[in-house]
């Protein structure tokens, strides 16, 4: 996971807006990023450009004991829906990337996104 932490650590929003954009949105790109080639990781994340927030959705290695093939379109849609639901109910974890590791802690203030979702 050190490579994943390193990828996000200290980056400007514009710098992480690369890879394959899945959702035809300039403001809220849903991105698939390949890390370290075909044997590395695949990261799926959503970016709220205006707020400069990144929602890490799904990560999988391509090889090793936890390795998996690329996810299907159906799975991409499911994770996309999952992240929206998580934002709606405020079920989010804050990810920090210090010391080349990913640390997760409950995110307290999620109202700013919840309040803005029009059902």
């Amino acid at each position: 996971m050190a490579d994943v932490a390193e990828y996000f650590n200290g980056k400007e929003i514009a710098e992480i807006c690369s890879g394959t954009r899945l959702n035809n949105s300039d403001k809220f790109p849903y991105i698939k990023k390949r890390l370290n080639g075909s044997g590395g990781y695949r990261i799926y994340f959503l970016v709220l450009i205006q707020d400069e927030n990144v929602f890490l959705i799904f990560i999988h290695p391509k090889t090793g004991p936890d390795g998996a093939e690329n996810i299907s379109d159906k799975a991409k849609a499911k994770y996309y829906k999952d992240v929206l639901e998580a934002i709606k109910v405020g079920n989010l974890l804050e990810v920090s990337t210090s010391n080349r590791t990913l640390s997760f802690s409950p995110l307290q203030n999620t109202d700013k996104w919840k309040a803005r979702i029009i059902e």
């Binding site: 959702n23 403001k27 809220f28 709220l48 996309y80 929206l84 996104w113 803005r116 979702i117 029009i118």
Partner: peptide
């Protein structure tokens, strides 16, 4: 539809 909902964020 999810993209549409996000657009309203």
């Amino acid at each position: 539809e999810i993209t549409d909902q996000l657009t309203n964020l």
